[in-house]
């Protein structure tokens, strides 16, 4: 009998909320999934995971290899405890890399960034979201689940927890951690993003975006045009087909016209706000709320309004 397996996303023994969404996705494939919680000391994350409604049982998987991300070692540890069947996890960059390995070790196919499950038909975006592809499964698969698509599972459950210890060999070594230059959130981690385009006129004007981002707890992103034009705007901020694909709850595009390249990276955001002086800019066709105004006029008001609202 084939099982449904969920691999929890755990960073430094802390369970990520995305896992609750993966539980919902897994339940659409069948009942009583097994949830694997990896960690160097996974007990508290496992207790939390056991409350997800619908989970059949939890395996708290202890292995010292989980101190540093090493996809080969992590795959070895997880593969040794995961029974055959579909395996699902979050589509973070670590989740996607690990899932690709797990698929090979389980002789199955990987489907990344799943947004819909209907029986054995699985849909995921391709061409950076310019199209959706539906594939049909003829056997067990490994899937990563796009965040902010499936509703998170409730937490009234009480699944049983079993403990397993493994000792997998790290294949890479962590030499050094270089802390971030700033405490700024990365666009790929943020639930709110405010991005600037070439319409910002100069890289110095991104300071305005940063002060608004600080009020919202948001990350600051940029269009490819901005990254290509100004050295001061690093590629790590780029949202779009050749930058990062993001899926936040709120995406605020300022001075961004909405080239197809950029839309491909952010069109699935839950809510999109566009601020642009050109009312015919394509970005307005994708915005939930559009404001036709220059950023010079709109941003000070936005900052003030958010200040009043959020303190």
């Amino acid at each position: 009998m084939s099982e449904i397996i969920i691999l929890a996303e755990v960073i430094n023994n802390t369970l990520k909320e995305s896992t609750a969404e993966v539980v919902t996705a897994a339940l659409s494939l069948g009942g009583n999934p097994i949830l694997i919680v990896p960690g160097t000391s996974p007990d508290s994350a496992a207790s939390m995971a056991a409350t997800y409604e619908g989970v059949g049982s939890v395996i708290a998987l202890q292995d010292d290899c989980f101190s540093n991300f090493d996809s080969a070692a992590w795959c070895e540890a997880i593969a040794s405890v995961a029974p055959p069947g579909h395996l699902l996890t979050s589509s973070s960059s670590m989740g996607k890399e690990l899932a690709a390995r797990l698929a090979v070790s389980r002789n199955s196919t990987i489907i990344q960034d799943v947004i819909k499950i209907e029986g054995s038909n699985i849909t995921h975006p391709i061409y950076s979201g310019k199209a959706h592809e539906t594939v049909s499964l003829n056997g067990p698969s490994v899937m990563t689940i796009r965040s902010n698509v499936f509703k998170p599972s409730g937490n009234g459950g009480s699944a049983s927890i079993s403990n397993v210890n493994t000792s997998s060999n790290l294949r890479t070594s962590l030499k050094e951690m270089v802390a971030k230059a700033s405490e700024r959130l990365d666009v790929s981690e943020a639930d709110i993003i405010i991005s600037g385009g070439r319409g910002m006129g100069s890289p110095n004007n991104f300071e305005k975006l940063y002060s608004i981002a600080d009020k919202l707890g948001a990350a600051v992103g940029a269009s490819r045009a901005a990254v290509d034009t100004w050295e001061e705007i690093p590629h790590s901020m780029q949202v779009g087909q050749t930058g990062k694909t993001v899926n936040p709850s709120l995406y605020i595009a300022v001075g961004i016209s909405g080239a197809i390249q950029h839309l491909a990276g952010m069109r699935t955001s839950k809510y999109i706000v566009a601020i642009n002086k050109d009312g015919t800019a394509p970005i307005f066709r994708h915005a939930d709320y559009g404001i036709i105004a220059t950023w010079e006029e709109a941003l000070p008001i936005l900052e003030q309004e958010l200040g009043t609202l959020l303190g």
Binding site: P125, K130, E133
Partner: peptide, 21 residues
Amino acid sequence: NTSVVGHASPPDKPPGKSFDG
């Protein structure tokens, strides 16, 4: 062990609200 069922354009969002100024 998978085959393609088909491709589709992503669903259009309902039109948003636009404000001038």
